[in-house]
Simulated scan of single mutants.
Amino acid sequence: MLDPHHYVEALNLFGLLDRPEMVPAAVYRCCQLGPGALLEGVQREDGSEALERLSPEDLELCMETVPRLMRATVRVMMGLTDLVEARMSLVCAQQPDCVMPKTCVGGLAAMLGEWRDHMAYRVDTDALGTDFSEDVDTRVCRGAMCRVCGDVLRAAHRRFRREVWAALPRLTETDVKGWNSG
């Protein structure tokens, strides 16, 4: 994986090479940088004094993409909280696939509460982030949730992330033929 500050160089390079199929991922990654890095530029890979800067058009594209990515993150978070609530209902109804119903209900309720309490801190431009799955992994390892419930939650999170990935050209307003087809 590239150093985060190389994303600006990558976006510039993809423009020079006329590689529109690479632009959505580069714009996504640039949107993970702070406004200072986007506005002022980043240190170049070659270590020269000159900073790598986005073109005015790419800077505008990134600034327009940030709120769309934040909305995508909110949709993912809402989907995940709905999913945890639904899983709690299934476990409470004693669905046969959960192997620790009492523990899982408690673990799911705690997870839901923590995610809701800290929702404002989790809403950012990283709609493809893995925090939720990592949180589930931690809870499964600590015995606060069974592996079956963890697998259900992680699978749904992967599905939400795939949906965001598939929508990336639209979110970045980049015309890419055949995106996500292979």
Rank of each mutant, 00 (worst) to 15 (best):
G182K: 07
V84F: 07
L80M: 12
L171P: 05
S133K: 03
E57G: 06
Q32M: 14
V148G: 06
T73Y: 10
M100K: 15
R170K: 07
L11T: 01
F132H: 10
E57T: 14
G41C: 00
H157Q: 08
K102G: 05
M22D: 11
G47W: 06
C141W: 10
A93M: 11
C104G: 05
V105M: 03
G150N: 06
W165M: 13
R87C: 09
Y28T: 02
S48L: 14
M77F: 11
V23S: 13
D82G: 14
Y121F: 06
R29D: 14
D18W: 15
N12L: 02
E64Q: 13
T172D: 02
V176C: 13
M1P: 02
V74F: 13
D175A: 03
Q95M: 04
T65A: 09
V74E: 15
G129P: 07
P169F: 11
T73S: 15
D131Y: 11
Y7V: 01
L17N: 10
L171E: 08
D117Q: 07
V74H: 12
G15T: 10
Y28F: 14
P67I: 01
V123W: 04
A166C: 00
N12A: 08
G143C: 05
R29Q: 11
E57C: 03
S181Y: 04
P35D: 14
A26Y: 03
R53C: 14
A167S: 13
L13D: 12
G47C: 12
H118C: 02
M100G: 10
H6M: 06
V23L: 15
C92A: 08
D131Q: 08
R122I: 05
M63E: 15
V8F: 01
R44P: 08
E9Q: 07
T174N: 04
E49N: 07
V136M: 04
L16D: 15
C141L: 10
P96W: 11
F14C: 15
P169K: 11
F14S: 13
H6G: 05
E134H: 05
D97G: 09
L108P: 10
V66H: 12
A26W: 05
T81Y: 03
A72H: 04
V8W: 01
T138I: 02
V76G: 07
S55Y: 05
V99A: 12
D117V: 04
Y7A: 00
V27T: 10
Q95I: 11
E173A: 06
V99L: 13
V99Q: 12
V23E: 15
L69M: 15
C62P: 04
D58L: 09
L13C: 13
R71M: 09
V8Y: 12
L128A: 14
G129K: 06
R71I: 02
V42R: 04
C62E: 13
R87A: 09
V176G: 08
G143P: 04
Y7F: 01
G150W: 00
S55F: 09
T172I: 09
G79V: 02
S48F: 10
R147C: 07
V23Y: 14
A144M: 11
M145K: 14
